[in-house]
Design a protein around this nucleic acid. Structure first.
Lengths: 221, 221
DNA sequence: GGATGTGAATGCATTCACAGCA
DNA sequence: TGCTGTGAATGCATTCACATCC
């Protein structure tokens, strides 16, 4: 088994690998068996050099004069990303965001399995969210250990987020997808991805302001 | 060919400005009137130098030996970000994501106003989503022009996204927050922010795999 | 002392350019 | 000819270090 040092893949590249996956799936579904770095780059607004550099981080398997085999490339990227198997996750927070997530179609069919749904509200416990029973958050440890779950999705109110985060970490969770707009303070062995709508909206507002200014002329206050 | 855009402030800095805003609001609500770059940085896991560089992009208003005035800093950042006033946006897609967004508390109270909700499904039109009437998507132009709306939030199925995006652009929208997992192809005068859950989940999975592979300990020494 | 603002240095990511192979 | 893989060059963002000011 060959040595593979994934820790030296730059962060921006990892983000793009997800995009490559999606695009490659789309090409494959159109029966395109081979693809060039230029074609893949164009479909995502990237240069061909960028694509080749990204792919070169984890092997050399392109064919000069031809391009890359779409199925091979898909398989290899999935392997590198750790998404060649389904990830089980638990969802904490049976509110609107939780419901939207359970119904979300953007995840590939075999990508994510919500193994359990938790909530702290006694009124919700025992009810169902999209056909999944809502469990008492007190049962967290039990469920995590029994099912070897490593990922948690936090869709709880802002003021509960830090508390719940500590609970899931204590239960053995290694990665958190956090929808609450707070900076979680956790051991650095735990990975956190923040889904931060306010940040994205503000960035959008900033860019739109910028564009309309450059058209109207810049003011000097 | 590129469009001219006076990008005075680097992109990574703009993203952090949103985080500064949130943190500053929190400090202000605890009646802290002044703050140092070190304190602000620590609360977000950034260095003091980074914070000072970021703030220096749009003025010099810190007080040596003292720090920054929290209210002044808040006001200035809001000004720069274009969030010193409320942004009106339209929401297209009255599904689960749309509902979650309307109920989302992460936006400051005066940050975003969903001015109208649209859907293409005749069964939904006329009904309400969180007390907001669902309008026929055919009325898009009319509403955008009458209310001078510049932002759109797209929470529609993947296969409808490109089509709807073109419609809202034609109606005069300048910025799009896109929840569908596709790369929108639009004129480059239109700003697009993608909320891409699959990408974030995959990145999380990758990082967790990495950690469990190598027991080399801390990544932030 | 304590903290800012900023040139200089460092570290990374992107782009360029080209050798080499089908 | 077409395309990959990769050292070299470029461009940016981050960090350092220190002059400056309260």
């Amino acid at each position: 088994m060959e040595i593979f040092r994934p820790q030296l893949i730059p962060d921006p590249t990892v983000r793009r690998l997800s995009l490559y996956l999606r695009e490659l799936e789309s090409f494959l579904s159109r029966d395109q068996k081979t693809i060039s770095s230029k074609q893949l780059g164009d479909s995502l607004g990237l240069t061909d050099a960028q694509v080749r550099k990204d792919l070169a981080y984890f092997g050399t398997f392109g064919h000069p004069g031809v391009g890359y085999s779409v199925p091979d490339l898909l398989h290899r990227i999935r392997q590198v990303m750790g998404t060649d198997h389904t990830w089980r996750a638990l969802l904490v927070g049976a509110g609107n965001i939780g419901r939207a997530l359970l119904a979300y179609s953007g995840f590939g069919p075999k990508m994510l399995e919500i193994a359990a749904v938790f909530d702290a509200d006694p009124a919700k416990i025992g009810q169902k969210l999209c056909d999944k029973p809502i469990l008492d958050i007190a049962k967290l440890n039990e469920v995590v250990k029994a099912n070897d779950i490593r990922l948690a999705i936090l869709a709880v109110p802002t003021n509960a987020a830090q508390d719940v985060a500590e609970k899931v970490v204590e239960a053995g969770i290694k990665g958190i997808l956090n929808f609450a707009p707070v900076q979680l303070c956790l051991p650095n062995t735990i990975e956190v991805q923040a889904v931060d709508l306010a940040v994205q909206l503000e960035q959008l507002a900033f860019l739109v302001s910028l564009n309309s200014m450059s058209r109207e002329g810049v003011r000097h206050p």
